[in-house]
Design a binder for these strands. Structure first.
Ligand SMILES: [Zn+2]
Ligand SMILES: [Zn+2]
Ligand SMILES: [Zn+2]
Ligand SMILES: [Zn+2]
Lengths: 127, 127
DNA sequence: CCGCACAATGACAAGGATTCTCAATAACGG
DNA sequence: CCGTTATTGAGAATCCTTGTCATTGTGCGG
C-alpha cells in the first residue's frame, strides 16, 4: 500500500499550515479551491479524516458547530483555543494550566485536555 | 404568549436533572421514553434547543460527536468535563483553574471558558 | 521515456443528525 | 366545560459527513 503525493493533499496541508488557526472542512475546501479549482469536497473530507486518524492534524470542537482542524505540529506545541462569539472564528492561544490531575475523581486516568476560552477577539472588540 | 406546562417538557427536565452528567439528545430521548412512551424525537430536539436558548441548559462539545447538554444550575456551579475515550461518556468534574486572562492576546476580552479533560473513566479503567 | 497497477479523485448516492412543516392534540384562562 | 392557541408527533426537508464507483494520474519497472 503505497502513498501517492497529489496536488490536492498538498494544497490542503498548505491551507492548514498558512491559516494559523483551526479551520472547518468547508473553510479548507473554499481556500483550497483557489489553488486547485477542480478539487472536490469529498477529497477534503477524506484527506482531513485520514490526516486526523494518522495524528497529523487535531480536531477542535465548538458547541453547535462543525469541528475545526489544525496541524499537529502546531498542536504539538501545547496550546489552547479562543472562540470569538462575535465572528465565530477560533484562535490559538499559547500557555496552559497546571494541576489538572487534582480535578479527577479517584480511578480516572488523565490522558489529555482541551481548554477553550471564549469572548470577543481583538478585531471584533475594536469595532 | 403564555407558556404551558407539559409532561414532555417535565420529563426532559427530570432526565437531565437525574442524569448527573451531560447527555446527548438521543440519550435524553431514550430516557424520556420510559416515562412518556409517546414522546417524539422532534419534541426533545425542540425542547432542548429552547432550554439552551433560554440559558436553562448548557451545551458541551466533544470532537466528532453530537453535543451534550446539562442543566444550567449544574453549570452555574462552575465545573468542567471529562470525556472517557473508552465508553464515550462525559462526566462532570469539580474544580477549576486560574490565571486564564494571562493567556489572552492583547485586545481580546474573556467572557468564559470550557475545559475538557480526557482519558479513561473509573469504570472502564477497572476492566 | 512508456505503460501498467492501483491509490486517489470527483460526482453523486446514501446515511445520520437536526430543523422545519403542519394537522392534530391538549393546557389553561374564562 | 369551551375556545384559544401553545405544543406535540410524524414526516419531509436540510445540513453535514461518509460511501460508492467509474475515471484519473502517480510512481515504479521495464
Ligand atoms: Zn471576532
Ligand atoms: Zn494545556
Ligand atoms: Zn468509560
Ligand atoms: Zn473553569
Amino acid at each position: 500500500m503505497e502513498t501517492r503525493r497529489t496536488k490536492q493533499q498538498q494544497s490542503i496541508r498548505e491551507v492548514l499550515a498558512e491559516a494559523g488557526r483551526p479551520m472547518s472542512v468547508q473553510e479548507v475546501f473554499d481556500a483550497a479551491l483557489t489553488s486547485v479549482p477542480t478539487i472536490g469536497l469529498s477529497t477534503v473530507y477524506r484527506t482531513i479524516r485520514r490526516l486526523a486518524e494518522q495524528g497529523e492534524i487535531a480536531a477542535v470542537a465548538v458547541p453547535g458547530q462543525p469541528d475545526r482542524y489544525e496541524l499537529a505540529d502546531v498542536a504539538a506545541t501545547h496550546h489552547h483555543h479562543f472562540h470569538c462569539t462575535e465572528c465565530d472564528r477560533v484562535f490559538d492561544v499559547r500557555g496552559c494550566v497546571g494541576g489538572l490531575d487534582r480535578m479527577l475523581p479517584p480511578g480516572f486516568k488523565l490522558r489529555g485536555h482541551e481548554l477553550t476560552l471564549s469572548g470577543v477577539c481583538g478585531g471584533c472588540a475594536a469595532r
